[in-house]
Write a protein that binds this DNA or RNA. Sequence first.
DNA 1: CGCAAACTTGATGTTGCTCAAGCTAGGTGG
DNA 2: CCACCTAGCTTGAGCAACATCAAGTTTGCG
Lengths: 237, 237
Amino acid sequence: MYAYTATARPASIDAKTLVMCRGLGQSDIARIAAMGTYQKLAARRTLFCEGDTAENVYEITKGMLKLFKILPDGRRQVTGFLSAGHLLGIAHDERHLYTAESVTDVVLCRYPRSRFDRLVDEVPGFARRLLAATFDELRAAQDQMLLLGRKGAVEKIASFLVMMADRVDQTGGDELHIPMGRTDIADYLGLTIETVSRTLSQLRRNGVIGLPSPTRVALLDREQLEQLAEGGYVESL
Amino acid sequence: MYAYTATARPASIDAKTLVMCRGLGQSDIARIAAMGTYQKLAARRTLFCEGDTAENVYEITKGMLKLFKILPDGRRQVTGFLSAGHLLGIAHDERHLYTAESVTDVVLCRYPRSRFDRLVDEVPGFARRLLAATFDELRAAQDQMLLLGRKGAVEKIASFLVMMADRVDQTGGDELHIPMGRTDIADYLGLTIETVSRTLSQLRRNGVIGLPSPTRVALLDREQLEQLAEGGYVESL
DNA sequence: CGCAAACTTGATGTTGCTCAAGCTAGGTGG
DNA sequence: CCACCTAGCTTGAGCAACATCAAGTTTGCG
């Protein structure tokens, strides 16, 4: 049913590069590597659906995924965008709590859930590692609640751009690549695509950003963007 | 600085009742009990502030706390209400990510962070226990993101009431005690207190709930309330 | 070069916010 | 014991922000 694209030549896992293995000993890393397989996923494909049985745990190696929940009438809330180094699929008992879909082409490292669970008890420090990853997700979720509940459209867009900038931290150029479409941004920020588009245009008119193309944003005045993200409105708006 | 109310007679910890100890062996439970002390906190007091050094981990034994974040200009987002059995203070590196304040009188079981951290590595199954608690919080946070980003006022209030009803699950009476004030509800749902008040009145007029007093809600038509929470609008609205 | 999907922009509508009074309940002091 | 007083809640009128509906415009791909 889902659009899995199996790797033609399943390359062996380069475990020491995995976030999951950070801080573990050589033998444990080897054990984790033996358990995982790479999986490729083309852009705009579903990895799993909310309510599916959670059979695997994944670490993203390359590309970007989005996670979202849907109301019966189709309203969608994107709960997060995950890029290389993020884990997913661990936070569930049996069933996934959200749908995961690729934004770009993605490479994942996949672990069978049963074997993965055993590691949590057997490898010292591994549970702590997962705990830290889950805390990070929780912190992001709390920031997002503040954004969704209390920020206006300009603050939401500014916060989103600052987040994207922090994520890649391409200190060189001030130009940012935005892989997701306007619909995904809108569903992440609790806005409509029209408001996203209008607000970006407004920031461009005020000289805070440039928009050379829909997927590229030039951060012309990052300081003001950070001000706007926190509600520190500048008189010029 | 904070309004701690020390227990006059520090009763010994009844560790087997603690959520934190669920599934652990006798000796580990004893160890945790030896580490904890009870602490009382009167209603409307601050337990810790966002940005404070996280020195303790707590389990709530009695009463209710709220967690919230604040923007520079004072806008507030309540990220959660915690009642008996919930843990707090674990999800941080060094600094607290939110402010914790009591809603009612509260009894807490407090653990020094340094010793608590050691347990995570030394007691098998303990990290897994914390992981499960953190997943629960994360699941709640994701549901709240959907609520804040995509639900209207009626759906938000209905969801809130259903959540409160599930929490106590007082299957007997259909009357619910709401310990927090309208301001807290508003800041939890991303609304103003006026909208909270108006929406509750509207549900009362439609016969879905009764409001014998501001702190009491009678669930007259729970099925419809659950429909409303998920956006399944009934024609009568 | 042509086409479809995605994005932008404009006009209008609705929801929930703001501002402004009342109302109610619980606690205090006479 | 009762009247007052205050904090919190409710209700109303007008308004602002964002959504909705409806064209255009651009982009990227075949």
